[in-house]
């Protein structure tokens, strides 16, 4: 996994609450058996006038001009800011894959849905919870100031605005450690293979019916 340490990037304000993962990446694109290539279909229905299809050339599709990612000033954005309950709905990891593939490294919102939040960390994407007031401030400032960028320091757990305001944020120690060092979760868990085997042996004694072959 790509490590995340510090990042400074242009902010794209997506002024919507309850952004669901169907919105982030509609179902027709989930038919891919790869992890990459979802960026051009990120927010497909919000972004394009027509109905998108997998494997389509998106460069000639009609754009919804008002949509934030279609505005010239937000091209190259790598920090997405949105309203509460971001990432609700389906567990599809294609949602963080699409955000990552588009070029986002950080998503900031006042709250996230659990599964989406968790999926981000598996993909080097940092979801940050700030307070409603802080999010409001970033919305206001990013909309009024062209080229508005935030700096994010994961080790210090701080978001810094262009004017020098600092917002601290929470992150689980283990997730932080994995993200900072780009560690592979599976490898880390397998370091505890003995503990898993010990548990499994005891479980087999207690509930042997769970260990029968499935035919």
């Amino acid at each position: 996994m790509r490590p995340f340490t510090v990042h400074t990037g242009l902010v794209a304000p997506l002024d919507l609450a309850n952004v669901d993962t169907d919105m982030i990446i509609p179902k027709q694109f989930l038919k891919s058996i790869k992890r990459t290539g979802f960026g051009k279909n990120l927010f497909d229905e919000l972004r394009y006038e027509d109905e998108g299809q997998p494997d389509q050339d998106c460069s000639t599709r009609p754009l919804k001009k008002d949509f934030v990612l279609n505005q010239a000033r937000y091209q190259g954005a790598s920090v997405l800011i949105a309203r509460k309950n971001f990432g609700c709905g389906s567990s599809r990891e294609h949602a963080p894959w699409a955000l990552d593939d588009y070029g986002f490294r950080v998503v900031i919102a006042p709250s996230f849905a659990d599964i989406f939040f968790n999926n981000c960390f598996k993909n080097g994407l940092l979801p940050i919870v700030l307070t409603e007031a802080q999010v409001e401030q970033v919305f206001t400032e990013s909309e009024s100031t062209e080229g508005y960028a935030l700096s994010i320091n994961l080790a210090d757990q701080k978001v810094t605005t262009p004017s020098g305001d600092e917002f601290s944020f929470d992150v689980d120690a283990f997730r932080k450690h994995c993200l900072l060092h780009g560690l592979d979760d599976i490898g880390l868990t397998l370091q505890h293979a003995d503990a898993i085997r010990t548990y499994e042996d005891a479980r087999k004694q207690k509930a042997p019916w769970l260990f029968a072959d499935k035919k």
Partner: peptide, 13 residues
């Protein structure tokens, strides 16, 4: 429900 990375994690561990 879990994401695909976790599907792989559960299969492996």
């Amino acid at each position: 429900g879990i994401g695909t990375s976790e599907v792989e994690h559960v299969m492996a561990t």
